[in-house]
Design a protein around this nucleic acid. Structure first.
Length: 566
RNA sequence: UGCCUCAUGGUGUAAUGGUAACACAGCAGAUUCUGAAUCUGUUAUUCAAGGUUCGAAUCCUUGUGAGGCAACCA
């Protein structure tokens, strides 16, 4: 029996169900065409990853009769920059998706969009309005009262055409005139109260330069761009739900469109202990509250990547969270699970001691050095092994020793015994302190009969197994310990309307250990490689700050810690 | 104050009128040269009230709660 027959098909989310129904009904000639349409005004974050996995995922699932376009929604030149275009393309690729030849820009359609606007004017469905922004706002009415149509709404087609052409020519100042759709000033949907289609912006555009001084609004450009690309399913987040009637109005009132897409909305991703809006992320960067867009604490794709989170983990996470219209708040633990699951498979193990205590093996020869074989991966023999040196003086993790152990602590304690993993067992004979009472050294004896996992003769085998690093051979390396950026689950909500979310910034979100003691093999850790420091956490050799023979490590995520102090 | 959308364990989702299930988190145990991983077990769920029906998480009504909407932003 084939595997496909044995496993029940994964349940479809409401979007995939809709698409399946379209396909079953023979719509769109059996094609599925989606698009990921970011505005290049910031860096992509994990919320975008959800949309990317959906749109590009759909294209993969329905291959070969499907594709996903990458389209830059660059209709507001005052906010957009090439830097963002470049980073977005890099991030989508890194996530493992490929738009092939289907790279587009809304700005590529400016001429066509302009012609469609003239068409709407000719049909009497659009007019040039001279009202000020303030007048327009006043005449729009409120949520409970209808609006009043502009006194300019009755201009003739010829006059509108003339005015619109002169808008394009640059005869007017910004704000002087605007092109509006003529729909319904009394609509319960504010977006249908004669929405603006074009505004005057004497601004330089990152792609069209100074060719244009009128720019289409999102609500106008988006549906028509979708149609021009023969998009079949235009998927966006819930806040655009209210825009849908306008989307449909444009699609049905403009003639000569090659496609007739429809829009559906899903809930955006919210994650605990972070913020997701571009505006807030921009603020963190601009005010130097983090170290740039790719700060490993940021929820940006570039930040996650630099933290050491893999594309596979992000894709798996996006699969787990599903797709609904429910405005949810996902626990960061779900992401961490996906990260650990992937990193556990791919990371080689090594020893790193973050907060060292010196251990002296009093019965070990002063000059002696020996090497112990250590497996690179406990569940993957093909990962091979390495030789880890050991000498009389070692470092162990300060957490692994307790002078006055609490119940259930089975690491090293005075008079107690632990195993040095892959080496032998040691017993703590003496605790040396300085004048201030700080522990400076542990004097231990080792048991030569306990090599290679053998249990001590005539005794029960110690429960504690700890990692260690030879003092003489250890390398020093900077290690950055990252933690959640905020101290509360919902910094935006807790700050409230007028509050400042930055008050909840976690001051301990970054701790730098300048000189962690690492096993010597880690000296060769290539930038951009993933490691598990056994019993500590997953780390990533920073691809930017690491130098040859001088790696710098970022903590990606800690290991789960099943030991609860009693 | 009007309209639109949504509501299933602590969290995220499934069940498409017919036994409320899965993952994460939690807890307990087994196992372990990582207190990890793995394996086993386990706690805990249909917003409320009515109605339709042999039967409702699902359909209807009302209520409650949450989110969205009045840029020449996207």
């Amino acid at each position: 029996m084939s595997e496909a027959a044995a496993t029940p098909p994964a349940p479809l989310d409401f979007i995939r169900e809709m698409i399946a129904a379209d396909l079953a009904a023979g719509r769109n000639g059996g094609q599925v065409v989606t698009r990921f349409p970011p505005e290049p005004n910031g860096y992509l974050h994990i919320g975008h990853a959800k949309s990317i996995c959906l749109n590009f995922g759909l294209a993969q699932e329905h291959a070969p009769n499907a594709r996903c376009h990458l389209r830059f929604d660059d209709t507001n030149p005052t906010k957009e920059e090439v830097e963002y275009v470049d980073s977005i393309m890099a991030d989508v690729k890194w996530l493992g998706f490929d738009w092939g030849t289907h790279l587009f820009y809304a700005s590529d359609y400016f001429e066509k969009l302009y012609q469609f606007a003239e068409q709407l004017i000719t049909k009497g469905l659009a007019y040039v309005d001279d009202q000020t922004q303030e007048e327009m706002r006043l005449n729009r009415g409120t949520l409970t009262t209808p609006g009043k149509r502009s006194v300019y709404a009755d201009r003739s087609v010829a006059e509108n055409l003339d005015l619109f052409r002169r808008m394009r020519k640059g005869e007017f100042k910004e704000g002087e005139k605007v092109l509006r759709a003529k729909i319904d000033m009394a609509s319960e949907n504010m977006h249908l109260r004669d929405p603006a289609l074009y505004r005057i912006l004497h601004a330089h555009h990152h792609r069209t330069g100074n060719a244009w001084c009128i720019y289409p609004m999102y609500d106008y450009a988006h549906p028509l761009s979708d149609a021009l690309e023969s998009i079949t399913h235009s998927l966006c987040t819930l806040e655009f739900e209210i825009h849908r009637p306008l989307y449909e109005w444009l699609i049905s009132n403009v003639d000569g469109l090659p496609g007739s897409p429809y829009q559906r909305e899903f809930a955006r991703l919210n994650l605990t202990y972070t913020v997701m809006s571009k505006r807030k992320l921009l603020r963190l960067v601009k005010e130097d509250l983090v170290n740039g867009w790719d700060d490993p604490r940021m929820p940006t794709i570039s930040g996650l990547r630099r933290r050491g989170i893999t594309a596979a983990a992000i894709r798996s996470f996006c699969k787990t969270i599903g797709l609904t219209k429910f405005n949810s708040l996902t626990e960061i633990a779900l992401l961490e699970h996906a990260i650990r699951e992937d990193l556990n498979k791919i990371s080689h193990r090594a020893y790193g001691v973050l907060r060292p205590i010196k251990v002296v093996l009093t019965n070990y020869l002063e000059d002696q050095v020996e090497h112990f074989e250590a497996a690179n991966h406990p569940e993957d023999p093909t990962a091979g092994s390495r030789q880890v040196p050991l000498c009389r003086e070692l470092y162990i993790e300060s957490d692994d020793f307790m002078e006055f152990p609490s119940d259930g602590f089975h690491r090293l304690k005075p008079g107690g015994e632990v195993r040095l993993k892959f080496a032998f067992c040691i017993i703590c004979q003496e605790v040396i302190k300085d004048d201030a009472g700080n522990i400076v050294e542990l004097r231990c004896t080792y048991d030569d009969t306990t090599r290679h996992g053998k249990k001590p003769e005539g005794r029960t085998k110690p429960k504690g197994i700890i990692h260690w690093v030879s003092a003489r051979h250890a390398i020093d390396a900077p290690v950055r310990l990252y933690d959640r950026l905020f101290t509360v689950e919902t910094p935006d909500a807790d700050a409230g309307e007028d509050g400042d979310f930055t008050q909840f910034l976690n001051v301990a979100s970054l701790e730098i250990i300048p000189n962690a003691k690492l096993e010597p093999s880690l000296k060769d850790a290539a930038p951009g490689t993933h490691w598990q420091f056994e019993r500590v956490a997953y780390f990533y050799a920073d691809p930017i700050d690491s130098k040859p023979d001088a790696p710098v490590f970022n903590r990606t995520v800690t290991l789960k810690d099943g030991w609860v102090k009693k």
